Computed example of a mutant assay.
Amino acid sequence: MKSFKADYVFPVCADPVKNGIVTVDDYGKIISITDESTPPPIDVPVETLSGVIVPGFINTHCHTELSHLQDKIAQGGGLINFIKDILTLRSSDKTDILAAAEAADQQMYENGIVAVGDISNNSVTVDIKAKSKLYYHTFVEVLGFVPERAEEMFDNALKTAEQFKPQSVSITAHAPYTVSKELFKLIKKYSDSGENLLSIHNQECEDENKFYRYKLGGFNDLYQHLGINIDFFRPQARNSLQSIIPLLTNRQKILMVHNTCTNLKDIYFIKRFDRKINWCFCPNANLYIEKRLPKVDLFINQGLNITLGTDSLASNTKLCILNEMRTLQQNFPALSIETLLEWATINGARFLGIDNEKGTIETGKTPGLNLLTGLSGFKITDDTKVKKLV
């Protein structure tokens, strides 16, 4: 048994507790949340800390298998150049890939992350995830823009997913510009038949919308670079997000990731459809790749389930949800710590379907406990740090 007392405890599901005391058992299960006027129900020594206790963080978007690409790709080159670099550089010695992925897993643990929605294009991280202290849900990502190869690519994804079982795993589309209508339909059919969480890269650059609206922009050059004939593609006269929504299942939760160029019309368009859309921001990756941030203000007060992710070390300097919160706080000062914590904890837990155990500090749960120090009036600053307690 352990008890921790801090200046405040933020359960997330309830009001902050001033001079709060959290007691956990040896397995990290919450025994009680009290304040200094009500001692813990069990006679346990109380460790007094300076700062704020919050639940463990949920990272809903990462690519651990790309961790070996840290510092290999120049910042600010734009998404299309980033994709070219990934395709050129991602092949490496398996020992190096595994060592970097294992270090990334440990880094997330030390930064107070307790659960990860992780993108995989192969099975290289299976054993790392099986041994990890973190909870992982793996999204096996399907790419295939050529219609004739849809079944082949989907079958390959099924085989990869089998290698992750019995871990939590599902099959998902990579992005609108890499998945044909035929492949989207196969994913929808599969998703309609059983549990299959979806996570889709969405509107990371203006060229994605230009391509879908007018068949113009840099993606034409990318397909030419890759030797892909896109004569079959017809512009949709609407943004990429609006174009693919009818192709998606209404039976599964769907995470739209990045949303750098998503506008209010896109948000309103989606609300007209019966789809279980969630939204993930990875601000530091957006700055790393495109040197811009999503229009976060448009998403606030819309009643949307918003989560946070780190993306990969190919597009970020560290895997730290606090660092993502800091960037959002600095660029959108009106965001409260209560809102940011919801995005960083319970919203991600709900999307991953683990909110019965993680996401809030409640009796009976095992959410993990983090201590935040260096706050200024509940604002995240350059001095704010996270320390994992449990």
Results as ranks from 00 to 15, higher is better:
F211P: 00
H68Q: 10
E152M: 07
K29R: 11
E324T: 05
E152R: 04
N239Q: 15
N220A: 09
D15H: 09
G377L: 11
N323A: 09
N323G: 12
N370T: 09
I277V: 10
E204K: 00
D85Y: 02
T339D: 15
N259I: 05
S180K: 04
N156Y: 15
G20E: 14
E141S: 01
D85E: 14
G51A: 07
Q203N: 14
L352I: 03
Q203P: 09
D118E: 13
V44I: 09
I321F: 02
D382W: 08
P45G: 00
P11A: 03
D311I: 06
D71N: 15
E110W: 00
I86V: 14
A99I: 13
T95L: 13
Q302K: 10
D26Q: 11
T178V: 12
Q167K: 01
E195Y: 13
F164V: 05
Q330Y: 10
L328I: 09
E148H: 00
D7P: 11
L247N: 02
V12T: 11
G303L: 07
S170Y: 03
M108T: 00
D15S: 14
R275C: 08
H61I: 06
K181T: 14
A173F: 00
T125K: 06
D207C: 05
I97A: 13
A100C: 11
A173K: 02
T381Q: 10
L341R: 09
T384A: 03
R350T: 15
C282T: 15
N305R: 01
L87P: 07
N196A: 10
P45A: 06
E362L: 03
L158N: 11
G144K: 00
C320H: 07
V386M: 10
G377E: 13
S243D: 13
N229A: 12
L375S: 08
S336Q: 08
S240G: 06
T345W: 05
S3D: 10
E102K: 00
N301F: 04
A100L: 08
P294D: 09
V12R: 00
N263C: 11
R251Y: 14
E148T: 05
D231S: 06
S50Y: 10
L216G: 10
F82Q: 04
P294C: 08
K188M: 14
R238A: 15
G348K: 00
F332K: 01
G217W: 02
L226C: 10
K215H: 07
D207G: 03
K185I: 15
G364Q: 08
I200Q: 08
I289W: 00
I270W: 11
M108P: 00
D266I: 07
L66N: 09
T60W: 03
R272S: 13
T262P: 03
S32F: 05
T310Y: 01
I171N: 03
R292N: 15
D221F: 02
S168P: 12
H201C: 09
L341H: 04
L328T: 08
G227R: 08
L298K: 09
F139I: 06
L369P: 05
T310R: 00
L319V: 01
A237R: 12
P367I: 05
L183P: 06
T345N: 07
A115T: 10
Y135C: 10
Y288R: 01
D35S: 03
